[in-house]
Each structure stands twice: as structure tokens, then as C-alpha cells.
Design a protein around this nucleic acid. Structure first.
Length: 374
RNA sequence: GUGGGUGUCGUCAAGUGGUCAAGACCCAGGGUUGUGGCUCUUGUAUACGUGAGUUCGAAUCUCACCAUCCACC
């Protein structure tokens, strides 16, 4: 059993695979299911850490790739680690850079050793390998480190995805070997295999054998249809141990969260709430609204009448629309805070519903309002 | 009052005789999924100051008028 992380399964929903759990890390306890906001460059964009905490966030995600290039992980280490550096003292999960190898696409080359890529900042050449990724994540001092994997493009051939998935497992073994802080930093493995069930099974079998403190399902939410996404959820979580946290990477819309939780997933992260906030969109109990729309010009009600966040307690749609149209940063701040609170509140509601064996009812109620006018 | 300049969508601005008069901004929608932080995408407009004239044809040339800017008195 890992010293760095403990997972307790508190309750299982009666009518679905939804789980209510508790994850204990060196920086505190995380109640699950949990949504994790993303703070790529050691900051959740447009938000102070205090505000992030106020939304109910229990853990945030940050990035190996970005912090390695700037300011450099040695600087974060000298600062006393990422928690100190950015003044966030609750748990942090760091992504390994594997996804950037995928999203950078054209600017890189993958070999057995690792990935060679050009920096998006200055074009300089860098190598990211399992050893390098873990070294950086050790410097950052995150509570949960992700294995350096390859997230293969969804349109890749079956043959490529099979080879990539096998390589991801070989890389995982190297990550385990490279970890200097196994007692304080938990390493999660990542399942790959695209949309092929047998490849997913193969991947799961190989990584579960390595007995890691937690497991992620990678390679989804990369542009596939919702049907394909749900298709993977139908079987993938069941391939992972029930006494370890399960994490689906990169999802953050309410419908995707409901589907994941229903199929036994405990953790998820997404840039979506903070990104759409910076583009003038809010998620509400009655569906998404674009604050840019002219119909909100004289709407002096809050973004979401059912929300208890700082933004909704103090500001109107008309005011936020004005700020957005005027190009004021404050609109990003207010919308980001609301959107994060919305997902934290949704997670709270989900946890409570599981405890009361009424998760499916919550899902139904939520959808009936969220999709009411669609 | 005198001399000179300028008048093209809401705004800025291409176009100097010949297809449906660029483009940008604004405005109005939509997108965003392990973040390359003011983004990507689509769409709307009774725009050539007014009136005459030259010409097969004028936003483009001529004249008058109007408006506006600058200088001088």
C-alpha cells in the first residue's frame, strides 16, 4: 500500500456504479467524486488561489510541460515546491506532459526513449522522457503525479494505437523506477488503447499488475463523439481495481461528468470551465449561457439564480456582460469563479446523492433543468 | 470673408472610368474537453455628401451646392 496516498471507498450507489470515496494525501483529504480545476502555469487563470479554494475546489491540476519550460522546475524546487511557490496548500496533481506531446502535434517526434519537441515559447528543442517527467514532477512536489504516457490521436491506426499503448506501459515501469519520493508523491498509471476494447483490456491488465495507488483512463475526450466516449466508459472503469481511485482525464461538462460517475469514476479535471469563462460563457443550472448575448443587456439577475458563489451573490448578468464587452479582466475573474463553483457544487450534490442512493434521480433532475429549453 | 484640404456601411479605411464596392473594428450568433490566456468560426448593413453634366459605362472626370477641417483676415 502506498504511503503517499490512501483511498477509502465509503459507499456505493444502489442503482449505478457510482462511488463515494475519500482520498488522503500529504496535503489533505479529498472527498470524491471530485472535479479538479486546472492551473496549467502554477495558477488557475484569472483567479487567486484563495478564490479557487472558496469555490470548494479540493485539489487542482498543474502541468509538468509548462513549468519545465518556464520558469524551470529547479526554480519551483528552490521556492519550496509548487504548493509554496503558488500559495496553494491543498493537494495538487501534476500532469506528466504526455498530453502536450499529443496536443503539440506537429512539433514533435516520439521514440522509445521519449518525445522530442519544440518549445511553444521559443522553439528550442527539449526531450521529455519518463525519467525527465518524473524528475520534474518530483521537483514540483505534487501529491499525485501522472505517468508519462502517449495519448495517441483518435484517428491513428489500430496498429499504431496498440504499439503506443504497449509503449505507455513500458514507460510506466520507467516512471516507477524514477520516482525519488514514493512516500510523499503518489504515481498514477494511465490506461490507453483508444476505442478498442481488447487493447484497453490489455493495457489495464499490464498496469494493474504494477499495483499503483491510482489509475487514470486516458485517450478519451480527445474529439470523439459522446457515444464513443460512453462506449469506453461502459467497460473501462471496471478493468481497474475497485479499491483505488479512478480518474478520467480531461472531462468537465456536466453530462460527461454524470456519465463518468455513473460508471464508477472518482476524479476528473478539465480546462473547460475556466476557458469558456474567458470567452464569455457561464454554466448554470438551466444550461449554458453566453453573456455576450444582447438579451442580457438589461438583465439584472445573477448568472444562475440557484448559485451561491461570490459572483452570483454580488453581480448581475448585465454588469458582467458590460465588463466582457468592454474587455475588462474582471469579467474573466467573475465568470471563472462562477463556473468553478458550479462544478464543485455539482460534485457536492453528486456525493450527497450517492450517499443517499439516489444518484440516478439527481442525474434525471439535473438534466430536466439543464436541457429544459433544448 | 479669402485660400486650401476632405466627404465610401455605426467607425476606420481600400478603390482614380468597366464583374455582386476590399479589409478591419463594431454589432449579432455559434465553438471551446489531461489550456499555446483577450481566441476560433459564421453572419448582418437603405455606405460612395446632394444635384446636375460628360460617357456605351462614373465612387472615380466636370460644375454648382451642402457639410466639415486647416490657415489667413
Amino acid at each position: 500500500m502506498s504511503k503517499a496516498l490512501k483511498f477509502e471507498l465509503l459507499h456505493k450507489d444502489y442503482k449505478s456504479k457510482a462511488r463515494r470515496g475519500r482520498i488522503t494525501t500529504p496535503h489533505g483529504v479529498i472527498e470524491s467524486p471530485v472535479f479538479m480545476p486546472v492551473g496549467t502555469q502554477a495558477t488557475v487563470k484569472a483567479m487567486k488561489p484563495e478564490s479557487v479554494g472558496d469555490t470548494g475546489a479540493q485539489i487542482i491540476l498543474s502541468n509538468t510541460y509548462h513549468l519545465m519550460l518556464r520558469p524551470g522546475s529547479d526554480i519551483v524546487r528552490e521556492a519550496g515546491g509548487l504548493h509554496e511557490f503558488m500559495n496553494w496548500h491543498k493537494p495538487i496533481l501534476t500532469d506528466s506532459g504526455g498530453f502536450q506531446v499529443f496536443s503539440l502535434g506537429h512539433m514533435r517526434k516520439i521514440t522509445e526513449e521519449g518525445a522530442i519537441f519544440s518549445s511553444h515559447i521559443d522553439g528550442s528543442k527539449h526531450m521529455l522522457s519518463p525519467e525527465k517527467s518524473i524528475e520534474v514532477q518530483n521537483d514540483l512536489g505534487s501529491d499525485i503525479m501522472m505517468a508519462f504516457d502517449e495519448c495517441a490521436p483518435p484517428n491513428a491506426s489500430r496498429d499504431y494505437i496498440a504499439k503506443s499503448q504497449e509503449r505507455t506501459t513500458r514507460w510506466l515501469k520507467r516512471c516507477i523506477e524514477a520516482n525519488r519520493n514514493p512516500d510523499t508523491q503518489a504515481l498514477f498509471g494511465i490506461m490507453q488503447g483508444g476505442f478498442y476494447r481488447d487493447l484497453r483490456e490489455e493495457s489495464a491488465e499490464a498496469i494493474v499488475e504494477l499495483d499503483l495507488p491510482g489509475y487514470a483512463i486516458g485517450g478519451i475526450s480527445v474529439g470523439e463523439t459522446k457515444e464513443e466516449y460512453i462506449g469506453v466508459l461502459e467497460y473501462a472503469p471496471d478493468l481497474l481495481p475497485s479499491d483505488k481511485p479512478r480518474y478520467v482525464m480531461g472531462i468537465g461538462t456536466p453530462d460527461y461528468i454524470f456519465e463518468a460517475v455513473e460508471h464508477g469514476v472518482d476524479m476528473f479535471d478539465c480546462v473547460e470551465p475556466t476557458r469558456i469563462a474567458r470567452h464569455g460563457v457561464a454554466t448554470t443550472s438551466q444550461g449554458r449561457i453566453s453573456i455576450k448575448n444582447a438579451k442580457y443587456e438589461r438583465d439584472f439577475s445573477p448568472l444562475d439564480p440557484e448559485c451561491d458563489c461570490y459572483t452570483c451573490r454580488n453581480y448581475s448578468r448585465a454588469y458582467i456582460r458590460h465588463l466582457y464587452k468592454a474587455g475588462e479582466t474582471m469579467s474573466h475573474m467573475l465568470l471563472s469563479e462562477h463556473n468553478l463553483r458550479f462544478l464543485s457544487k455539482l460534485s457536492e450534490d453528486i456525493r450527497k446523492s450517492i450517499e443517499e442512493d439516489r444518484f440516478m434521480e439527481l442525474k434525471r433532475e439535473f438534466y430536466s433543468k439543464y436541457y429544459a429549453d433544448k
